[in-house]
Nucleic acid binder design. Structure first.
Lengths: 344, 344
DNA sequence: GCAGTCTCTGTAAGCGCTTACATCGCGCGC
DNA sequence: GCGCGCGATGTAAGCGCTTACAGAGACTGC
């Protein structure tokens, strides 16, 4: 359908090689010839064939981004961070979501060969051997929020433990002694680390831990709502609730409101992630800020480094810091709404 | 790095053709041979090379998605809708954002040849001839929210006019007679259609239009904030403000709050898009719902149809309906927060 | 017993491109 | 006047794969 380099060469009365040289701007070509070829190329609406090029150049100019899902602000922000960095280096993104299905994840890993120059993978519950079995040998990869041991892979993680620890310390500082935690999805790395941070903070600050104060959740608003009801049914209610992410905190907030429990007056509430909506809830939600876009950007930077430096690249694990964001949901005396920062 | 089909053939003692047949499951192969090849392939960790395959099959198994930007809920939702539909048909997505730069947009269009089987393009201000000059001939494309005349291209649009019309009618029905409009970005198709809906509703319902009530904006929260201040400075204030999107409405809301103007008591406020945050503002924002994910999904469906049906595919323009979502920002007597639907 | 048929496998062309190498003038210095 | 270097261009191999076609056995039916 589209013209090939051969047709351009024919039409311009030169060989394929010369056309190729003009299109890629390499090798000496007489200016007059160059102009003629360019003119013919434009007339025939010639554009180089990506697959053919990458077959021989061994570069695709694209990176793969494999996510568990595509829904919600978290993934959207990750992609944005990745995209920004990739675009500034002239790369495209091949994104796919596995929707949690393991088989799909594996199939996607396999089909990446010859389609991308590297991979960013977010798959919180993948094991190293699954990865190794399905990853094209020699394809650079950076893991995002995965718990994979050893130094076989680059990886970037959020400081979930530190963030959760800081939040619980904050709550204890406000005088709370019975603090419930709504857990994240089981087997999820982030969830486990946040739980660990919660437990460690309690222990180190000498506050007693109780099994009944650790409620199951799965990161959805719905789960937060259910957890909220469950907490309200507890014989001895806690005075504060720490949800493993903001979505669950918001769900919980609705459960509390339905029951007429006032936040923060009757119950303090805190989340994790600091998603944009957190500023807008009533009261605004105290949370742990994670620069999600920075997470994606950092992963892309590492990947670019791996691709560019090839042999000199050293694999390593990185942890991105978090920051406590204190708003009205944990103590009184704040304006119901702070003027939001205009997003950059 | 990764094994090639040749190595597998050699190791298994068969020809390339047989390996290819096994990998693609076509053509008769003796079961014993098949097993041996499969075993060798697994051992060598062979996976087919995407570029090489698509070079000869003329299929890439991917669609290109070219967006103006990657930021915010709108694009994230569009991508999600597209992804869901694409994945269910076994396609990947090559996404890119042009950040509004025209040159980048054109370059991206060109590099798509041989990388994707079709294209979804959202570029609110692209002209037909730019498109034709840079699009690989024969590459199916669906335009999203673009204003391109004729039937050269498939296109999907939101019923911006109808949505705006319905909103203004609603405001007039509530008794408002001076209704300000915060316009969207100039030259933007959506923005112009929403403005047209606003004007048409005023005219058809016999409400006088005034130039000073049409305030410039560009779809950002910041612009909404500025517009809000500008409206408050008007010698004769309107009783209602209709922002061309929710982000501006939220910005405007802050301006009103800063000035001590109560919504909806002193001023009614409405937006457009019904982004998730709209439920959470105080008061919750009356808006026009656009199923953004559906928009993306529909575009993908059309594209799939174009690719599958090839010659029988008929190009056409489609318009997706909108729905008025009435919340507390336009009249009193509502709960400050409705229980949100749990996202599916 | 042999053409016809069917199943399995191999041979080779070629997808569209890049690039190492070869070729060919041409001007230059001596 | 001749070899040399250099700039401009062509030739051809080959990236990894699919597939049309051919070929080789093994049956079948008559």
């Amino acid at each position: 359908m589209s013209a090939t380099i051969k047709q351009v060469a024919l039409e311009a009365g030169v060989s394929l090689a010369t056309v190729s040289r003009v299109m890629n701007g390499k090798g000496p070509v007489r200016e007059q010839t160059r102009q003629r070829i360019l003119e013919v190329a434009a007339r025939l609406r010639y554009m180089p064939h990506g697959a053919a090029r990458s077959l021989i150049t061994r570069r695709t100019g694209a990176f793969g981004v494999l996510l568990p899902d595509m829904y919600g602000e978290f993934f959207s922000e990750v992609i944005r961070g990745i995209d920004l960095t990739a675009r500034s280096s002239g790369y495209h993104l091949l994104v796919s979501s596995s929707h949690g299905r393991k088989g799909e994840m594996e199939a996607m890993l396999r089909t990446m060969r010859g389609r991308v120059d590297g991979l960013i993978l977010m798959s919180p519950d993948i094991e190293a051997h699954t990865l190794e079995a399905n990853l094209s040998p020699g394809l650079p990869i950076v893991l995002l929020n995965c718990l994979v041991d050893g130094t076989s892979f680059d990886s970037i993680n959020i400081d979930n433990h530190g963030g959760a620890f800081a939040m619980v310390r904050h709550l204890i500082g406000l005088g709370h002694r019975r603090i419930a935690m709504i857990r994240g999805a089981a087997n999820n790395h982030d969830a486990l680390e946040r739980l660990r941070g919660y437990r460690d903070a309690l222990r180190e600050l000498g506050v007693e831990r109780a099994d009944e104060l650790e409620i199951d959740g799965d990161f959805t608003e719905e789960a937060g709502y259910r957890a909220g009801k469950q907490i309200l049914d507890l014989p001895r209610r806690p005075s504060a609730i720490f949800a493993a992410n903001d979505s669950m905190a918001i769900g919980c907030l609705f459960a509390l409101r339905e029951a007429g429990v006032r936040v923060p007056h009757d119950m303090a509430l805190a989340g994790f992630d600091d998603i944009p909506i957190a500023r807008f809830t009533l009261p605004p939600l105290t949370s742990v800020r994670v620069s999600i876009a920075a997470l994606g950007a950092r992963a892309m930077e590492r990947l670019l480094h791996a691709v560019t430096m090839k042999n000199q690249h050293q694999r390593r694990h990185e942890t991105l810091p978090t920051a406590l964001v204190v708003r009205g949901s944990c103590h009184e005396g704040e304006l119901p709404h702070a003027r939001p920062q205009i997003a950059s």
